[in-house]
Amino acid sequence: MINNQKDVLMDLVINNKHISIRAGGGRCLLDFLREDLSLMGTKEGCGEGECGSCTVLLDGKAVLSCMTPMERAIGREVTTIEGVGRPGNLHPLQQAMMEEGGVQCGFCTPGMIMSGVELLNRKSNPNRDEIVEGISGNLCRCTGYRKIITAIERAAEKMS
């Protein structure tokens, strides 16, 4: 990455692994994750903080990685979709999204799951309004959201 900004030392925890690499600074966290770490699960749908496709957890809080300077992640803990659960060891929300039909084109799905996971970490038994609020920053153009909401409800049931 050729960039006018100076290199920075990115020392942080990503998906429970400590990393320490030099990288061209001055970019958003989304670009750092995708371009330098090849964590391609986090998506860019608008690049202006409106669609939620780039949602990741920073110290457990959902943030829009397209609006987050990469330097802000230094010394902190980042969780992406790749750190939520892998095949054979899925997070209950990933499993519920599959079973309830919460996935269609799948482009919003990683960001949607990150917002859902954060909500479930915050609240073990969210009601429907809280779920809607929890994912209201994540746009989906395919599903009409209802099956996603149901998936979060099912995951909450399973987790409690």
């Binding site: 809607v132 209201s136 994540n138």
Partner: peptide
């Protein structure tokens, strides 16, 4: 022509279907 001014439905806009 951007998503901050062209608004599409969010989860909060969806009725019972």
């Amino acid at each position: 022509a951007n998503l901050s001014t062209y608004l599409i439905p969010t989860a909060a806009d969806v009725p019972p279907i």
